[in-house]
Computed example of a mutant assay.
Amino acid sequence: MTALVQACDLRRVFDVSKPWLNRVIERTPREYLTAVDRVSFEIKRGETFALVGESGSGKSTVARMVVGLLPPSAGDVSIDGVSMSDPRQAAARKALRRRIQMIFQDPYASLNPRLRVDDIIAEPIRAFDLITGAREIRSRVGELLRLVGLHPDDGVKFPHQFSGGQRQRIAIARALASEADFIVCDEPTSALDVSVQAQILNLMRDLQDRLGLTYLFISHNLAVVRHMADRIGVMYLGRIVELADGRELFSHPRMPYTRMLLGAVPDLAMSGRARIAVSGEIPNPIDPPRGCTFHPRCPDVFDLCRREVPLLIDGVACHAVNRPAP
Rank of each mutant, 00 (worst) to 15 (best):
T2H: 14
T2S: 15
L4F: 14
L4Q: 12
Q6W: 07
A7M: 05
L10S: 06
L10H: 08
D15H: 05
S17P: 07
S17H: 11
S17M: 06
W20E: 11
N22V: 14
V24C: 08
P29W: 09
E31Y: 10
T34R: 11
D37K: 08
D37W: 02
D37V: 05
F41C: 07
R45M: 09
R45L: 11
F49E: 04
F49L: 10
L51A: 01
V52H: 02
S55L: 00
S55H: 05
S57E: 01
K59H: 05
S60E: 00
A63D: 03
A63E: 02
R64A: 05
M65Q: 12
G68V: 06
L70Q: 15
L70G: 07
P72L: 01
G75M: 10
I79M: 13
D80L: 06
S83Q: 06
D86Q: 03
D86C: 08
R93D: 05
R93H: 07
L96H: 06
R97Q: 10
R98Y: 05
Q101R: 03
Q105V: 00
Q105W: 00
Y108D: 01
Y108T: 10
Y108F: 12
L111H: 12
N112P: 01
N112W: 05
R114L: 02
V117D: 02
V117L: 09
I120M: 02
I125Q: 13
I125R: 08
A127T: 15
L130A: 04
I131D: 03
T132E: 14
A134E: 13
R135V: 05
V141F: 07
E143I: 01
L145F: 13
L145E: 11
L150T: 04
D154T: 14
K157I: 00
K157W: 10
S163Q: 09
Q166V: 10
Q168W: 03
I172F: 07
I172A: 11
D181W: 04
D181Y: 08
F182P: 11
C185I: 15
T189P: 11
L192H: 05
S195F: 04
V196S: 01
A198E: 09
Q199L: 07
L203K: 00
L207N: 10
L207T: 00
L207H: 09
D209I: 14
G212F: 10
L213C: 12
Y215P: 07
Y215H: 08
L216S: 04
L216C: 10
S219C: 08
H220I: 00
H220Y: 01
H220W: 00
L222N: 04
A229W: 13
A229G: 11
D230L: 04
L237N: 08
L237W: 02
R239I: 09
A244D: 08
R247Y: 09
R254D: 13
M255L: 13
L262K: 12
G263K: 06
V265K: 11
D267Q: 08
S271P: 06
R275V: 15
I276K: 01
G280W: 05
E281N: 14
E281G: 12
E281V: 15
I282K: 06
P283Y: 14
N284K: 03
G291K: 12
T293V: 10
T293I: 10
R297K: 04
P299W: 09
D300Y: 10
V301Y: 11
D303K: 15
D303F: 12
C305L: 03
C305F: 05
R306G: 07
R306A: 12
R307K: 14
R307N: 11
L312S: 15
L312R: 04
D314L: 01
D314A: 13
A320Y: 15
P324W: 04
P326R: 11
